[in-house]
Design a protein around this nucleic acid. Structure first.
Lengths: 335, 335
DNA sequence: ATCTCTTAGTAAACCGCTTTAGTATGTTTA
DNA sequence: TAAACATACTAAAGCGGTTTACTAAGAGAT
């Protein structure tokens, strides 16, 4: 055994310490501290004695030992492509909040949209015995499914079965955003998306196409651009140039990162066009509130997403019950 | 013992399983799997046999058991006021990255600037036996210091001794930002800050005052406003009204949240003034790049902050060595 | 022929908790 | 007056690892 960091001058009290000092067995101490004293017929005096001593020693349970013994760590994982993306960090905050309410802690990690990194993270987390994971996956997660880890997907999903999945009405939202642009007079709308192999992104593209068709506009494949996640800066830049060469009069960005980057580039390279072109974006950003140009955006219900994810996960962990999928509505913010 | 989630149909192999299947003791398996086979005189054949079987069974170590035994969890905590604040979430991402490089996982939590919540989080984390914590504290953390948990402070610090602390040159940066505003013709600069009991905030205020004095401008206390963290929206709104009543021609915001809120409000209530007033903000926001009005901001070196925090923490954890404080430089981005 | 070294391992304690299957004593009930 | 029951507790195994202190067998040195 290694020395732990307390042993040199201060030993963290364990239930053994309490047991010795109160003259009862470890078993009794464990029962009392877990509030099972009455159920287990421990007399009131003994219970009081144990509790007093625990308090006096400022006893804190070793959660690791507890977890090892119970096969439950009361810790969940939150795995996303990039925790510094405001969309994800807002949800992280809320997940943390709802998890804490139930005594769970949260480990986070970013996958960078890389399947190998995702796999590594999931392995590290399951080895740490997390009880479940909330994830915006980058790939199919087959091997973790096999390991039978309770899991809730959000934002995207690769399973054929729409199990344990929290998402938004992607195609409808894209349809509405496109409709707004058309309503503002746009006739030629460029779409800047990414990772079009992601189901949620595909739905967004479908919504966009639907809106065009409904309004008698052409679907022009050269106006639909798929950016490489690993080359966002460069790819968005060439997308902007290309689309403006095609003389688009509106942009639909499929997420906040693309929108922020794209708008910045239009500002930089084509300031004369900035007032003539309309912008719409999936995901809201706080700054859209005051920044120019005005951007029409789709606000995802972060709080509901987080709450549903946590609830679904706990349903799996605690009740061994699977959930179906939930599709939440976005709020279109017109500016 | 509870059944763990595998037991119904699939038992996770343990070193015991490997030991049985390879006909050696648990001890030997442990040595081999930890790469100490040669050191411990385990023959090459035995090592190969053990490793092969481990691989075939797809053995994954139970990190909890390991941690319990070793008194080390290879997990650290990252505790900030609000993980959804981009300043913190960016650092979180980097901390996660540097921690992962060394095989550590990261638990995060938000304190909401509330000391009781901070204390609860720290208790939950230490009970989970984290090896150390990187924290932007809201209070003095006396009790955790007593528990002897390796800890690195960043952004702010309440200890008299400047130990294990990563920060930026607050007063110099505030001075420079103020100077920039003056250089743009401002004569009456309103300061919107918060939590002025925080040492780092105080330094920023000092820098602001210094710049005024150096330029022969008056320090007017009624232009220095302290916002209540729990009432940011309301307080910033009244601050803006009050300062504009005083006819300020420049704003210095002491962090990104205040800046975003303040600029939005000026835009909303005083659009006619937006081009006449100059804005400067501590912390950069991506949107400052393209948003109007132009904001001069101080970019904190997130990567260096994160790297230094992680390094300092590991110095404490692994080498039992304390570090002094590091003060990093910001980059002023003029717009 | 004995002593010492090296090689190749292993038994068992331990980390701190939970839980099962008891025990011992007194109290009812038939 | 023995059997059944309730009360108040406990010993010990187990979770899955790590580590210390040994053992047993063969090789080399004296």
């Amino acid at each position: 055994m290694h020395l732990n960091r307390f042993s040199s001058f201060l030993v963290r009290p364990s239930i053994k310490t309490i047991a010795e000092q109160s003259g009862v067995s470890k078993t009794t101490v464990s029962f009392v501290l877990n509030g099972r004293g009455n159920e287990k017929n421990i007399s009131a005096e003994t219970q009081k004695r144990v509790l007093d001593i625990a308090q006096r020693l400022n006893y804190q349970p070793n959660h690791l030992a507890r977890s090892l013994s119970m096969g439950r760590s009361y810790t969940i994982g939150f795995v996303v492509p990039d925790i510094s993306n405001p969309f994800f960090s807002k949800i992280a905050r809320l997940v943390e909040h709802y998890a804490e309410e139930r005594g769970y802690s949260v480990m986070v990690a970013s996958t960078d949209e890389k399947p190998e990194k995702e796999q590594k993270i999931l392995t590290a987390f399951t080895n740490r015995q997390i009880d479940g994971v909330i994830i915006a996956p980058t790939t199919e997660l087959v091997s973790s499914k096999i390991a039978n880890l309770p899991m809730v997907n959000f934002d995207r999903n690769f399973n054929d079965k729409d199990d344990n999945f929290v998402t938004i009405n992607n195609s409808e939202t894209a349809n509405q955003l496109t409709q707004k642009l058309i309503g503002k007079g746009c006739q030629k709308i460029g779409l800047v998306g990414l990772s079009s192999f992601l189901p949620n992104i595909n739905e967004r593209i479908d919504g966009y196409k639907e809106a065009l068709t409904n309004n008698g506009l052409f679907i022009n494949q050269s106006l639909i651009i798929d950016v490489n996640t690993n080359l966002i800066k460069q790819d968005v830049e060439s997308a902007i140039h290309q689309l403006l060469k095609e003389e688009v009069d509106g942009f639909l960005f499929l997420n906040n990162v693309l929108a922020a980057e794209g708008i910045w580039l239009v500002n930089k390279h084509y300031p004369q066009l900035i007032d003539k072109i309309k912008f719409a974006s999936f995901d809201n950003l706080d700054v859209f509130d005051y920044a120019k140009p005005k951007v029409t955006s789709a606000l995802q219900p972060g709080d509901e997403i987080a709450r549903n994810c946590v609830e679904m996960l706990f349903k799996q962990i605690e009740d061994k019950e699977q959930s179906g999928s939930i599709r939440l509505s976005t709020t279109i913010i017109e500016r």
